[in-house]
Design a protein around this nucleic acid. Structure first.
Lengths: 359, 359
DNA sequence: TACTTTAGTGTAATCGATTACAAATATATT
DNA sequence: AATATATTTGTAATCGATTACACTAAAGTA
């Protein structure tokens, strides 16, 4: 049980009233319009008054009220990002990319979590629209089937960009990685190691990303004249335990696999733990490749091969797509589909040609 | 090099104009004030008009403009969170906690990164204040010495809550963990394993958190009549390589350490890698404990002992402190100092009494 | 000198919602 | 019926910044 120590202190705060352009205008005996113009470098203002205003504004510690500006202009300079969970390495890295790309343009990033729940997703989109967000970035939740809520947001005039997990909605741009290619490359590499019976630990095939990884896997097998055996394809749920039980199931088969391509690093880890428990040597007896380049895959004593989805780049590019959109005529929307090339990272778990570094 | 495939499509969007209370009032031939009251359940409105308004609002797909409301009320219902990097496991988990606690209260969470840079921190605080944020949560950057920018934010009337990394500023509440206790407990546990020459891989002692971990460590040594040897205290920078080179340095000493307490999981990992390279067995020859409960520490073949900072709880409690503050009279601020108890997680790297699970 | 042009500034409306105050209507009281 | 009271609705100001339009004063032109 978490113990908490608390200490309270009472303070009397002297809070200055916020300074507005009217305060400045009164002080200088000029109109608020002039102050506004001077602050905005806008129309032609005499150099002398501009300098006077700027100086006075600084003295009075004037801070522009972006809320008022937003209301007037209809542009809040806020964007929303909707993800299942923010503390997943992949998502937080995408968000980092978005933030770093948009901050220099004066945008702020609001984050929302769906907890993989469709209802939350709808709710989050609606409250974001209420706050007059300028755009929405999202990775749809696993339970999202319908896309009405997204179409409604679009009709409202809010540009939307999908990243990684998308749905087909006309007018929505997307930035994804080529999961098919990723599945293909990963499988091809396993084949290159001499593996012939490659099992696939798949995710929910209703999600495009898992479907594509799966299809890339089967295509690679076909291209190499290897049989696609449905017994070798196990549906898992991205949890460690799920990887372990998948191995148990596979090991009931007569012909045991000699490689595992997992659509998730966590199931790959679970599989590896189980395989070791059974006394198998990796990569000698069996090769394993995961997916996502979760930080831990790199740090293991047996580093795990995986596919890097370049999440930070994905975020940056999603942001760029959004910025482009904002530059265009609002009546016309460019639906842009960006497909990033994933990077296969070959580590010890699927590489028979290198010696283990540590004992 | 990242290759990118792009596909563009042009679409003509039919964007409905946003519906305001004036649109509703016109349609129903009543005043906007009445509409507003009906929507807000505010003063006494006849049941019939309220129902009529509500029905019409729904039909017309009315969405409240929270921006206008915010301007009027002076409350934006947005809070800002300032952290060094959002994609660090610790920070993203704190943010998750904050988001989950504040969303039910109608707040949105804006995230900002400082990249450990003091200037960015100032900049971020200022732009947050401009956007009329209702509060700021922050973990100060490593390069922050001065606290003027924070005091300015306070004077502006923006409540502030520090989490984890704080500075002493009157009027600012904070939620931290008891780093002293954490250091003490971790060291004590190593002593309990029979270790007598415990080295400490410290962080920047100018940061309170590292200072406290260090002090907890020395206190535990003293309480157990073990000598505090300054040669055993190495300053590191939370990087893996830094952990490895710390070991190199320590192994130049005549008396080698028999345990390592690292103020960071990454340096602990680097240390472990180096120790293994030298042929030492962990935990038999030497015990190692890290700090932060980074996800990878759990997944290693040799799971690493560490200190869990309960980041999600920290976020939730920081949010609660903020909410309390908002409930109070604004002229008075309760400065609340919450200290959470850290959780020492004992794993194989510092536990001589259990057998390794895997081979 | 008279007229046009330009520079600089002010007035007032606007963005959308809220709310103090006033007004109108309905109901109760004598 | 006349007045008092309660209920409901409207008017207009407000939050803070922006901007179309109007106006003044100064400079330029013939």
């Amino acid at each position: 049980m978490q113990q908490i120590a608390q200490f309270n202190f009472l303070l009397f705060i002297t809070m200055k009233d916020k300074v507005t352009i009217y305060d400045i205008s009164k002080k200088l005996n000029i109109s608020a319009a002039t102050v506004s113009r001077a602050l905005n470098n806008n129309t032609k203002i005499s150099l002398s008054t501009r300098e006077l205003v700027l100086k006075t504004a600084k003295e009075m510690n004037y801070k522009q009220n972006r809320l008022a500006q937003a209301l007037k202009s209809g542009k809040s300079n806020n964007v929303g990002v909707i993800v299942p969970y923010i503390n997943r390495s992949f998502f937080s890295s995408v968000i980092r990319g978005i933030e770093e790309e948009l901050t220099p343009h004066g945008y702020h990033v609001i984050i929302c979590q769906t907890h993989e729940n469709y209802k939350n997703e709808i709710e989050q989109i609606n409250t974001l629209i209420n706050t007059q967000i300028d755009g929405i970035f999202m990775s749809v939740s696993k339970t999202t089937i319908n896309t009405e809520h997204i179409e409604k947001a679009l009709a409202e005039g809010t540009p939307l960009v999908f990243f990684d997990r998308k749905k087909e909605v006309p007018g929505v741009s997307s930035v994804i990685i080529d999961d098919f290619k990723a599945g293909y490359l990963a499988t091809q590499q396993l084949i290159g190691q001499g593996c012939k019976r490659i099992a696939h630990l798949s995710g929910d095939l209703n999600l495009e990303i898992y479907k594509n990884r799966h299809d890339g896997y089967t295509k690679a097998l076909e291209d190499n004249n290897l049989e696609v055996d449905s017994n070798y394809i196990i549906k898992t749920n991205s949890k460690i335990e799920s990887g372990a039980s998948a191995i148990e199931e596979l090991w009931k088969l007569k012909k045991k696999p000699d490689a595992i391509f997992s659509a998730s690093d966590y199931t790959a880890l679970g599989a590896i733990q189980e395989l070791k428990k059974m006394g198998l040597k990796i990569p000698k007896d069996i090769c394993v490749t995961g997916f996502s380049n979760e930080p831990f895959t790199k740090y293991m004593e047996l580093p795990i091969s995986t596919v890097d989805q370049t999440p930070q780049t994905m975020g940056k590019i999603a942001a760029q797509v959004f910025l482009e959109q904002m530059g265009e005529n609002k009546k016309v929307s460019i639906e842009k589909k960006v497909v990033l090339t994933p990077e296969l990272i070959i580590r010890e778990s699927s590489n028979r040609s290198i010696k283990p570094v540590s004992a």
